[in-house]
Design a protein around this nucleic acid. Structure first.
Lengths: 153, 153
DNA sequence: TATTGTTATACTCTATAACTATA
DNA sequence: TATAGTTATAGAGTATAACAATA
């Protein structure tokens, strides 16, 4: 009986990502990483990571918000927020004031320096997003956000 | 001169997330986390995290793909892939064969058991996504992925 | 000289248990 | 008894430097 020489193991030239491309989660994750990367580069001048920016932005638009409320809104674990808030306070971007009617809690506020920085940082964040999503029209960008919100709201 | 009693520090009832909601990155990240969470719960039965699933899916659709090619496609660091590939091999889901014309590289392949499991796992992944994005119509789901790809491709 | 796969390692991110003080 | 904030800590995720074998 003749033994057939095993067919050579071909190398992969073009990589087929077809199945992964059909998953919303895969596409959302890849797009998120691109924008986060742009964010890290453009916001480094302010010394802000995405989470710091989110925290400061929420404090700015909700003076007196508590740590618990920040955690619930941003889906953070309370122990992981402690260090961030301490650092932002050390940098004199925020301050803690006693909560009006809950002795356990502290209301968080931006300092004047924090307000000034965030005014600029929010402009930078918006511009960086426009650059990262430059291939989308204004209408497409709006549609994209509406569709994304249908998933997580 | 009369001193005015400082106005009471009001507590925040309704949290304004308006600015963050206007950022594609924030919305993409929140949506991604929801889908990843659903993925972790539904794929736990296979013992697969998103990255394991992506690796196995690419190997399945690209028999003989190398570690380097996996890293480039999935944006992974080579040292972080070593442990994953070793584990998948220990679980007898994949095997390494010499690369046809590069003595440094190894071609990765699914074992019969790996193929059998991935056939089921890909169905589960697709179904879980449909559930997680149930508020989107088929057309909306397609539009969403097209828009996301415009950001990262 | 450059590349594949690897080891060792460090840094970040995220999660849990348990404590204190207040409600 | 429950909640806000905190401490300590563990695990997962991600990144870099450096090496041996091969191109």
């Amino acid at each position: 009986m003749a033994t057939r020489k095993p067919s050579p193991d071909p190398s992969v030239e073009q990589i087929d990502t077809g199945f992964l491309d059909s998953l919303v989660g895969y596409n959302a994750r890849r797009a998120t990483l691109v924008i986060v990367d742009a964010f890290l580069r453009n916001m480094a001048v302010y010394g802000l990571r995405p989470v710091d920016f989110s925290v400061l932005s929420l404090i700015g638009h909700n003076p007196g918000i508590t740590s618990r409320q920040l955690c619930a809104t941003l889906n953070l674990q309370p122990p992981n927020l402690v260090g961030m808030v301490n650092q932002l306070q050390t940098r004199e971007l925020i301050l803690r004031r006693p909560h009006p009617h809950d002795g356990r809690a502290m209301g968080l506020h931006l300092t004047p320096a924090g307000k000034k920085m965030m005014k600029q940082a929010e402009v930078t964040a918006f511009e960086l997003e426009e650059t990262a999503t430059a291939r989308l029209s204004v209408a497409e960008r709006k549609t994209l956000m509406q569709l994304l919100r249908k998933i997580y709201v």
